[in-house]
Design a protein around this nucleic acid. Structure first.
Lengths: 185, 185
DNA sequence: ACCTGAACACCGTTCAAGT
DNA sequence: ACCTGAACACCGTTCAAGT
């Protein structure tokens, strides 16, 4: 019991150190450096997280949970056009806020069991949104949940890519994406 | 003279080794490893290329030159709608073919003087295409050459991101982008 | 002039040794 | 059980020493 508490505290220290590094702009998140920041041995990092990817996933968990919540809310919006817009906007905003989440979504896979459930839930909610949107004729019939994942990752990349003047472009790119996925008719 | 020939041969060997690695799927392009493959000392790599970025740029030069050619051709197409489509399609296709070019375009900057000229030329051609397209009302008025750079980088990222099933998505994503940048009216 | 490769500072990952 | 940190294999980059 006291061992468990200890372990949990150590784990929290590592996550805090990692988060601090991310916020300081270090997207590399070196295991050695995080361990040092957290005041633990490197081995302890690996005991808790299988590797850098697992660490990223653990960091992304909270954002991811919030995102799933928003996706579910989007799926039950009365106006599904607004729902779709909300889903895409939320996915994009979260990615820009949390680089760890962006990494997980871009990889499209998940090592950590906890996140697997969240990813499925997100894709499931996206499927519902798309099904309703398609029925109402507000989205192209060939757009899949995975397309939304890829495309939002792409827009994030576009916003971030090259220079910092990109933040201002976010709303325009969002609009371009939203208009681009409208039905062809 | 003979020294120059020697140097040129060495340089060619390094570029060939780098290209071979890229084609083998190693996007990291470690300087040490490339040097070894090319049978030269690491120092020689650094004498010819300031760093990894410079090496990437040298590798991208040929593709980039071709791309500029296509962009200029697009700028003088009789039907500027087709010209715009051609510009975007070419930029995207080249990026998917040549990871080095994709890297340079995504960074949006250039260290190597040769490439600087090509980047300016590309952006200039894009500006012409957009000016004509805007005049004809086939594109949103607020789309800039840099937006096209960012957005094509983003679409490439979307195509590549997570899993290999993405190649099939290319045409659809292109269509989504093309439709998304149409005038709002 | 140009090239070589040892050397230094890192980073990922493992594992014997400690508590 | 859990943690530590030395150790190994890498990679970027520099620079004294060779030709």
């Amino acid at each position: 019991m006291t061992l468990r508490a200890d372990s949990a505290r150590v784990r929290a220290r590592m996550l805090a150190a990692a988060r601090a590094r991310l916020e300081a702009g270090d997207l590399e998140l070196p295991m050695n450096a995080v361990a040092k920041d957290a005041g633990v041995g490197v081995g302890t990092m690996y005991r808790h997280f299988a590797g850098r990817q697992a660490l990223l996933e653990a960091l992304a968990e909270e954002s991811f949970r919030d995102l799933v919540g928003e996706a579910r809310a989007a799926a039950v919006e009365p106006d599904i056009g607004a729902g779709l817009s909300r889903l895409i906007r939320a996915t994009l905003r979260r990615q820009l806020t949390d680089p760890a989440l962006a990494g997980v979504l871009a990889s499209g896979e998940v090592e950590y069991a906890e996140l697997g459930g969240l990813l499925s839930a997100l894709m499931g909610a996206a499927r519902e949104v798309l099904a309703r949107a398609r029925a109402e004729g507000v989205v192209r019939a060939d757009v899949t949940p995975d397309d939304l994942r890829r495309l939002t990752c792409g827009i994030r990349y576009a916003v971030v890519s090259g220079g910092d003047a990109g933040e201002a472009a976010l709303d325009r790119y969002l609009e371009i994406l939203m208009r681009g996925i409208r039905p062809v008719g």
